[in-house]
């Protein structure tokens, strides 16, 4: 497969069948439902919003944060300082980052597989070794987070609600990376989405950890965030190089 963007016979637009589309538009215009939206409204309708609102009000939550029967002394001491604050928020977010870093390992592995396949066909602004280093960083971060959860007495193997939801959000990225038809550009764009979210989430986790007086984790968390910032720079730079190179 050529890893390039090419012109061709894309059939999805109106211009590919202008007479048919003109006729379709006239027919649809004749049969407009009576409850059509006012011109100044978003056209998707009030009824959809009403259903979503009803369900959102009545819904039960995705799930709960598993808390240990007995928290470790480090955590209980901090809890006493936290007063009414909820330790489950920190555990939930630690679980989320752990799940994200773990899927990050698998995302980078998929990118490595793709890059290895394309390496013989095109010049790339990075080597497979570069990607392996990024993958290994994700693995190291995952272990930092698992250790943090374990040291708090929480269960690092549980899926927290935030972890479940972030897995849902990221599932499309894995589809992009593992599709044999996607190009390097598609894959780098997917990785950029993941890394940007990861960066922002590390910032938030660091703030939350500091708030919860869990300072023992902060040096490793700062180091992980710095490394994620470097990942964003690298991915962004590679993406720019590949896209501009292809366009020129």
């Amino acid at each position: 497969m050529d890893d390039v963007t090419e012109p061709g016979f894309n059939r999805t637009g109106a211009q590919s069948s202008p007479l048919s589309v003109h006729s379709m538009q006239l027919y649809a215009d004749e049969r407009v439902p009576e409850e059509v939206s006012a011109p100044d409204e978003m056209p998707d309708g009030r009824e959809i919003a009403a259903v979503r609102c009803d369900y959102a009000v009545e819904a039960e939550r995705i799930g709960s944060v598993p808390m240990p029967g007995v928290l470790t002394s480090a955590f209980t001491a901090a809890l006493s300082k936290l007063g009414a604050r909820k330790p489950e928020v920190l555990v939930d977010k630690l679980g989320e980052r752990l799940a994200f870093e773990r899927i990050g390992v698998r995302l980078y592995q998929a990118l490595i597989d793709k890059a290895s396949a394309l390496a013989t066909q095109q010049r790339m602004p990075f080597s497979v070794d570069d990607l392996q280093r990024l993958r290994d960083d994700e693995l190291a971060h995952m272990h930092v987070l698992a250790s943090a959860l374990d040291s708090l007495g929480a269960d690092s193997t549980a899926q927290t609600p935030a972890a479940a939801v972030s897995a849902l959000a990221i599932s499309g990225l894995m589809q992009v990376l593992t599709d044999p038809r996607t190009t390097l550009v598609h894959c780098l764009e997917a990785m950029l989405i993941a890394e940007l979210a990861d960066n922002a989430s590390w910032d938030l986790l660091i703030s939350l950890t500091a708030e919860a007086d869990q300072d023992q984790f902060l040096p490793q968390f700062h180091s992980a965030r710095d490394s994620e910032k470097a990942h964003v720079r690298q991915i962004r730079g590679w993406l720019q190089t590949v896209v501009l190179g292809e366009a020129s």
């Binding site: 799940a99 773990r102 193997t157 897995a167």
Partner: peptide, 10 residues
């Protein structure tokens, strides 16, 4: 495990 990074025991 290898595609979604998840433990089936969840």
């Amino acid at each position: 495990d290898r595609l979604e990074g998840k433990d089936s025991n969840n």
